[in-house]
Nucleic acid binder design. Structure first.
Length: 809
DNA sequence: TCAGCCCCCCACCGG
DNA sequence: GGGGGGCTGA
């Protein structure tokens, strides 16, 4: 049992300002009885409680040990969470360091942090607001040495895992059994999400099945390789933290005592490993009695747990999310309080009606209808382009129009199902001079040249990482081929030394003088860099590695025209490092590597307010924008072809569509294309089945998919049967459209190098896609000059002069 | 033994 | 469109 605060020791638990009764788990607050019928008057005078509806207020002030907030889209969930955190701090019920708030995406984490900081100012420091993965890395880095890893362990991304698996599969000839790096990786990932490891799996495996026997061996070797490389993959970060807590209860207790308030966002998306981690964290620590006084200190009870979720927004089944975690919360945590937030404060009624109509097609759900008191708003706008580029052009034109009417670019988001769809959007946006930023994509860090540069840093930070060493061994080309690589590897094995040590002893391998010299100078470069690390400056280390290795120089002098851009990317990485260092003066090389491994893009380093945000529907969850473009609403994309035939697939894809719709505050655009490029080829696309689930009167089709038939002609286009088909506001209804020439407003993705073409107001130009027009105005300088053109038939457009496919007449 | 070239095969979503 | 594997020429 908890005694009263003694007020003498150190640490928050002894601070007199902490209200002991409130730290106690499960105790009612002095001022309340836990009923949801709490008058708003209670919030009077406290800015943190003002303007909350009764349910939101209860969710902020409730202090039961376990709290589930069922929050429909736009119901003020983030507001409730951030105010709840802020009120804990403000009322001195907790120190910031006692708060652990977990989200799924980096974007959501930085958003929550910003909002808490806005409420509290600098008092938010010391709070852990992070993704599951970053929280686990922080714990693992501190405790790594307790279980045989060095503190500077590497985090392998999925591509790294596949390289390892590829080698293993090849060495075992397991490819004949149907193993590929991708499927083996997926299988291992699924197991790790269930907290299985190679040995526990082996215990239940059926070894008479050659496939299963081979898989056990692959799994074992994979895990052995990672351990030898002092590396964790993404799934390990969670599962190993759970194993750590279970194996070392005293270590777990440190975190259990520290985090008195654990809050989990998007709880419906937790998988078993994440669930287990939460359970471990909110378990009561062993009593920590003061040996001298015998006083048991407060904080020895289980931490309070707040989870927020909405089963209609569960979209991560593909990585093991288990909806039961939320549906069975009350059984898991007896005495838990449940609060429902249903009123929507984000979207117009038209948008909500569309969302309600769509999601009601999912069975097995508790009926729930979002509603707003704010009115119908504008109709949803629909558009069908001939191709992905036409669709992108429509999006660009609408953004341009809205921007001219005063809407900030930062208030606009474009969503899509797959990252591949960004290409067409980017090509058109660049040509149309629309500032955009791709959120959440890992693209930059997935580029080969960036991975190369990062591998140099990794090799310095974690010399055990053979994968990183092999990657840079012959990058740039220095005449060290596969034979030499294998030779080094064998030499290391034969002599019981690391690959890195084998490089130092290259002279003993009996290789040619040229190759030996190449290995030794690389080895020396890495040694120099390692010494430099101790002095601090990560950017200098990277610059030294880049100039010493000649990576940038090689790219600059290459004959391949694309290498120039690659060199610039590496330069940009150096700039990123410098920027990182400026913002995090106390952070070292390992911190930087962790950050880049876990934080998809450098997107929270920059303020994106002046740019349109492009992201996948998955990244969009939890965010909101004034204006939303939901693109590629086609069969095979949404639902995606990989999900359409899986059990639960179409329902999950519908939730994804629902998530996208409910992000919009005022304006929602839904678009699709008749044809879509994939594999570099163009295929016919059909409207998504979900489109017909939106009541026809809610959508204003600027250009309807109508009754156009697919090229195969065996099926009418999916939608015309319902509700009399699409509105015929577009001129295309009831007219088969199979030929591109029948389709108006079609654009290409052509660009042209216009060099230093000079344009001024009044000039006439001709554009490949838009025909003739008159230049109204020219803005910007140099390569960023933009022509504002009034086309004779295509309307007003902005064009980036340098690359637009235009000629001066 | 290595570099260059061609061809094939692929591809959902995130940390 | 692009990365990786396999083949060929030096």
């Amino acid at each position: 049992m908890t005694s009263s605060s003694d007020g003498t020791g150190t640490g928050p638990s002894s601070a007199p300002i902490i209200r002991d009764d409130l730290l106690r788990n499960g105790n009612p607050r002095p001022s309340g009885d836990g009923s949801t019928d709490r008058g708003a008057a209670e919030g009077d005078g406290d800015p943190l409680l003002e303007g909350l509806n009764p349910q939101q207020l209860e969710a902020v002030v409730s202090r039961t040990g376990a709290l589930l907030i069922v929050a429909g889209a736009g119901s003020g969930k983030t507001r409730v969470l951030t105010h709840r955190i802020a009120s804990l701090i403000q009322n001195r019920e907790a120190w910031p360091s006692q708060i652990l708030a977990i989200t799924f995406t980096n974007k959501a984490a930085s958003e929550m942090r910003e909002r808490v900081e806005a409420l509290l100012g600098s008092r938010a420091e010391g709070m852990w607001i992070s993704t599951f993965h970053s929280a686990c890395v922080r714990i693992l880095r501190r405790e790594a040495e307790k279980f045989g890893f060095a503190q500077g362990f590497t985090i392998y991304d999925s591509a790294d895992s596949r390289v390892v698996l590829k080698r293993i599969i090849k060495s075992l000839d397991a490819d004949v059994l149907g193993f590929t790096p991708a499927n083996a990786s997926a299988r291992i990932s699924t197991l790790k999400n269930e907290l299985a490891d190679a040995e526990s799996f082996a215990r239940t495996a059926n070894f008479s099945d050659p496939n299963e026997a081979a898989f056990v061996e692959i799994f074992r070797q994979y895990q052995r390789t990672l351990r030898a490389a002092n590396a964790f993959d993404f799934d390990d970060l969670i599962s190993q933290t759970v194993f750590l807590f279970r194996a070392f209860p005293d270590v777990a207790d440190v975190y259990r005592r520290r985090f008195r308030h654990v809050l989990v966002d998007e709880y419906q998306d937790t998988n078993h490993a994440q669930y287990a981690l939460i359970r471990e964290l909110v378990r009561a620590p062993e009593p920590d009695a003061d040996a001298l006084t015998g006083i048991v200190r407060p904080g020895d009870e289980a931490a309070s747990l707040t989870v927020v979720g909405d089963s209609d927004q569960s979209i991560y089944a593909f990585r093991g999310a288990d909806i039961r975690n939320i549906t069975e919360f009350e059984r898991d945590f007896p005495g838990a309080q449940v609060i429902l937030l249903e009123q929507n404060y984000r979207s117009t009624q038209n948008i909500l009606s569309a969302a309600n109509a769509v999601i009601s097609n999912n069975f097995d759900r508790k009926d729930k209808k979002l509603w707003t008191a704010d009115g119908d708003g504008e109709q949803i706008v629909g558009y069908t382009g001939y191709s992905g580029h036409d669709e992108a052009q429509f999006v660009a034109d609408e953004i341009d129009r809205l921007h001219r009417d005063g809407l900030e670019y930062g208030q606009v988001a474009v969503f899509y199902r797959t990252n591949a769809q960004t290409r067409a959007l980017e090509e058109i946006f660049i040509r149309q001079a629309i500032p955009y930023r791709i959120m959440g994509g890992t693209k930059f860090y997935e580029r080969a040249e960036i991975k190369d540069a990062m591998a140099y840093l990794t090799a310095v930070a974690n010399p055990a990482d053979e994968l990183a060493l092999r990657r840079i061994l012959n990058t740039p080309k220095r005449g060290i081929g596969p034979a030499t690589e294998t030779g080094l590897s064998r030499f290391a094995e034969d002599n019981g030394i690391s690959f890195r040590e084998a490089m130092r002893r290259a002279a003993d391998l009996g290789l040619g003088p040229k190759v030996t010299g190449a290995i030794r100078s690389l080895s020396a470069l890495l040694d120099e860099a390692a010494e430099q690390v101790a002095e601090g400056k990560v950017s200098e280390v990277l610059q030294h590695l880049m100039s010493g290795s000649g990576l940038i120089t090689t790219l600059r002098t290459s004959r391949d025209p694309q290498d120039e851009a690659r060199a610039e990317n590496v330069e940009e990485l150096i700039a990123v490092v410098k920027e990182y260092q400026k913002n995090n003066p106390d952070s070292g090389l390992i911190d930087f590597l962790t950050e880049t491994a876990l934080v998809a893009a450098a997107d929270d380093l920059d303020d994106a307010s002046g740019t349109v945000s492009l992201m996948t529907l998955h990244t969009a969850k939890g965010l909101e924008y004034d204006t939303v473009f939901l693109t590629g609403v086609e069969e095979d994309l949404l639902p995606h072809r990989m999900s359409a035939n899986e059990p639960g697939g179409p329902a999950e894809e519908r939730r994804l569509f629902y998530v996208g719709i409910t992000r919009a505050r005022k304006r929602l655009f839904i678009s699709l294309a008749m044809t879509r490029a994939q594999f570099g080829e163009t295929a016919v696309a059909m409207p998504s089945r979900y489109l017909q689930e939106i009541p026809a009167e809610l959508i204003d089709w600027r250009q309807s998919p109508g009754t156009a038939t697919s090229r195969g002609g065996t099926q009418p286009r999916a939608l015309n049967a319902q509700r009399g088909g699409f509105g015929s506001s577009g001129s295309l209804a009831n007219r088969p459209l199979t030929e591109k020439r029948d389709w108006p407003n079609r654009v290409t993705n052509q660009v042209r190098d216009n060099g230093d073409l000079e344009l001024e107001a009044g000039d006439r130009i001709e554009h490949t896609d838009f025909g003739q027009g008159r230049v109204v105005q020219v803005t910007g300088v140099g390569t960023k000059r933009i022509a504002h053109v009034q086309f004779d038939t295509a309307g007003a457009k902005k064009l980036l002069i340098k690359i637009a496919p235009i000629t001066k007449l």
